Amino acid sequence: MEWTSAQLRSLAELTRRGTVTAVAQALGYTPGGVSQQIAALEKSTGMELLRRVGRRVELTDAGMTLARHAERILATEAEAVEALERTRTEVSGTLRIGLFTTAAAEILPPALRHARERHPGLTVRSRDMDVDDVYDAVAGGAVDLALGLDYPDVPIPRDASLCVMPLSRERFSLAVPAGAMKGRTTVSLAAAAELGWILPSADSYYGRAVLTACRRAGFEPRVLHEVTDTAATLALVETGVGVSVVTDLMLRLRASRIDVIGLREAMERHIVVIFRSSAQHRPTVTALVEVLRTTVEAP
């Protein structure tokens, strides 16, 4: 029997996530691509690994058995990669990193420059993705590590298979149209209770974190525009159609004629790096984590 890591990972992820669509999202494939990986695995083993039950699919007994072994095979493969890296006299190899848009624009470029200077044998391949998907992407093996965001009010679920290392913390301010709160340098969130808001979906960690902070301040934000993209949010605030919350890193994405007012509430987000616990001593991973840490901490 012959199989690939991608085939085994697709099968293993199916036991965690339950649907081909969820596996595809976690691994960065299309649903058709996941189905092809499983089909190739079935051809190699000569056994049916999935069966259709109505509109769903479920693993057969053979599929469940192979999935359990797949986890151990993939773990052993990761150990072998780490052992091989340790035989080298310098940090070298290829790492895949997942990033949300702000990190891709503001953190990745200087991090790559520092990585080239310190570790010329290290190749970094990046993938832009939704910030709420980076945790699954690391857990599923679609990327080796990722930059993500964690909110004290809505913390990401902790998984023993993942390391979540804080890199920095950012405090939110209120972004309002120029002159909308003229003369005010610090306000409470409640000062914007009657204004229209520009926020991401309440299904996102960010959206839930802002909603939680507003409710704690005693009001329900009136969301006029549901927007995920930070640059688009800043453009809408500049146009005068609503307010939002921003951090210094977010403000660097777009030069905007808006007023930024301090908040009395300590509303924060934490920039974190996520990698698999099994890779925490892998030389390339520890090297890139250190590069990211010093890049984020740099003034």
Rank of each mutant, 00 (worst) to 15 (best):
P110F: 09
R96F: 13
A115T: 11
I107F: 01
R113V: 11
A103T: 03
L108Y: 03
P120A: 10
V124T: 06
R125E: 13
L95G: 07
A115I: 09
I107P: 02
A115E: 04
E117F: 08
I97Q: 02
P120G: 10
A111Y: 10
L108W: 01
H119R: 12
R118T: 14
I97R: 00
H114L: 15
R118W: 12
P110H: 06
D128S: 00
L99K: 00
G121Q: 14
T94E: 07
H114V: 15
T101S: 10
R118L: 15
R125F: 13
R125P: 04
E106R: 15
T101N: 10
H119Y: 15
G121L: 12
R127E: 03
A111P: 07
V124L: 13
L99R: 00
I107T: 07
E106A: 13
P109K: 02
P120C: 11
F100Q: 05
I97L: 12
V124M: 09
T94Q: 06
T101F: 07
L112C: 04
F100P: 05
T123F: 10
T101C: 01
R113T: 13
L99M: 07
G121N: 14
G121F: 10
A111V: 07
T102K: 07
I107Y: 00
L99D: 01
S126W: 11
A103W: 06
R96L: 14
L108D: 03
R125W: 15
G93F: 12
R113Y: 06
A104Q: 11
R96V: 10
G98E: 02
G121A: 13
A105N: 12
H119F: 15
L112E: 08
G98S: 05
A111E: 00
I107H: 02
L108F: 01
P110N: 01
D128N: 07
P110Q: 02
D128Y: 04
E106Y: 08
